[in-house]
Structures are given as structure tokens and as C-alpha cells.
């Protein structure tokens, strides 16, 4: 078995216009930056993108907003992206904002074959409008459904050609959950290794969840907020 594709270009060629895609990362941390760049260059359009944030104006998913390749965003926090806010407030971009814990659990449910769940989060807010509610153990809960997608684009630190992945520090974030939640998951990794080179005890995403894997050609790893103290 060999899940390795030759390039990010070859991988995104699988994604048709109008697809719904999960994209890992938190802010600019842990985003599949090679796959996002390749999507921009290919010009795939009319996308529904499910990702915690929308990048910044000139990096990450923000680039696909600028080129109007995204029709709808499903996110939790978009405060860092002026172009996003502008397109949303003007009605050019369809946006669904979801609480982060509900977002991650809905993705988890999609990957785990769960038809939905009751959560206390967002009870009594705009997010709960029109949704089924139930009092469980004296506490009101809101019913939330799984969040499915056609593709998931994730970034790992190391991966082998069977699709086993490990992550690095907080670049892990949504990547392992999203990797489970689409019929076609494409992983890009900083280091592509042979089976056996990753300690099986350390595998975070077992290869069964990953359909294709590429070695990321180049990593800029842009820092969004460089906060430092004196040396």
C-alpha cells in the first residue's frame, strides 16, 4: 500500500468545484499550507470551507477568500481577518459561526459515526435557535448534528506512506479530529518517512483515516502574533 501522491498539485486535483472541505489548523498554526497554496493556484471555486479560522488577509485560507474561491465558511472565530469581516457584513460570503467545542465535537461525531449529541453549550443563544433542546439531569442541552465534508486537508509533522501521523506541539489542534471526518483525507507532512520509523505508541492519527499523503514542499510557518520577553 502506498498512499503517497507526488505533489500538492496532484492532491488538490482530486477536489472538484463546489466541494466541502475540512481544513486543519488554529489561526496560522498547523495549517496545511502547501495544499492551500495549491488550491489557490488551481483556482478551485465555490468551496465550502470548515475551519476554525479564516487565516489572515494574505496567508492561509485568507488567500482563498481574496480570490473569491470560498462560497461559505463554517468557523468559530474570524477576528483576525478584515477581508472576511468585510465580505460577511456585506453579504458576499455565507458564514456559519459555531462555538469551538461544538464545532470540534460535530467534526468528531462525523468521523465516529455518531448521529448527533446534546451539549449544554450555547443554550439560550442565537446558535441554539431552531434546534431541539432537552433538559438532562436538570441542565438544558442543545442537539447538534455531525459536520460532514467531502475532503479533509490536514497537516502532520511526520507521516509514513501508510498514512500514520504524528503532530508537533499546538500544531496538532483540529488536525487529528478532521482527519477522521471525511471520506477523502489528504495529509501533508513536514517529514515523510518509511513505515516503522514512527513509534507505534506515538501514532496520533492511525493511517486508516488518511487516504493520501504528500511531503510538503516548503513551509513558511508564518507567526501571527510574535509575543516575546527579554532574553
Amino acid at each position: 500500500m502506498n498512499k503517497v501522491l507526488p505533489s500538492a498539485e496532484a492532491a488538490v486535483a482530486l477536489i472538484p468545484d463546489g466541494a466541502t472541505i475540512l481544513v486543519g489548523g488554529f489561526g496560522l498554526c498547523g495549517i496545511p499550507e502547501n495544499l492551500i497554496l495549491a488550491l489557490r493556484d488551481r483556482g478551485t471555486s465555490n468551496l465550502t470551507v470548515i475551519s476554525n479560522n479564516a487565516g489572515v488577509d494574505d496567508f492561509g485560507l485568507g488567500m482563498l477568500l481574496k480570490t473569491r474561491q470560498i462560497r461559505k465558511m463554517i468557523s468559530t472565530y474570524v477576528g483576525e481577518n478584515k477581508e472576511f469581516e468585510r465580505q460577511y457584513l456585506s453579504g458576499e460570503l455565507e458564514v456559519e459561526l459555531i462555538p469551538q467545542g461544538t464545532f470540534s465535537e460535530r467534526v468528531r461525531a462525523a468521523g465516529a459515526g455518531i448521529g448527533g449529541f446534546f451539549t449544554p453549550t450555547a443554550y439560550g443563544t442565537l446558535v441554539a435557535e431552531g434546534k431541539e433542546t432537552r433538559v438532562i439531569d436538570g441542565k438544558p442541552h442543545v442537539f447538534e448534528k455531525p459536520l460532514h465534508a467531502d475532503f479533509a486537508l490536514v497537516r502532520g509533522y511526520r507521516g509514513d506512506r501508510l498514512g500514520n501521523l504524528v503532530y508537533r506541539k499546538t500544531a496538532r489542534n483540529f488536525n487529528p479530529v478532521m482527519a477522521t471526518a471525511a471520506p477523502v483525507t489528504i495529509a501533508e507532512v513536514e517529514q515523510l518517512v518509511e513505515p516503522g520509523e514512527i513509534d507505534p505508541e506515538q501514532v496520533v492519527t492511525p493511517g486508516i483515516f488518511v487516504k493520501h499523503i504528500i511531503s510538503g514542499e516548503r513551509y513558511e510557518k508564518r507567526v501571527e502574533k510574535r509575543t516575546v520577553r527579554e532574553a
Partner: peptide, 11 residues
């Protein structure tokens, strides 16, 4: 006016 999203606050 302002839409930043709730992030993790509701949870």
C-alpha cells in the same frame, strides 16, 4: 457592526 465569532467562549 462587529462579528468576530464566539471561539471557545460559549463552551
Amino acid at each position: 457592526k462587529m462579528v468576530k465569532g464566539m471561539g471557545g467562549a460559549m463552551d
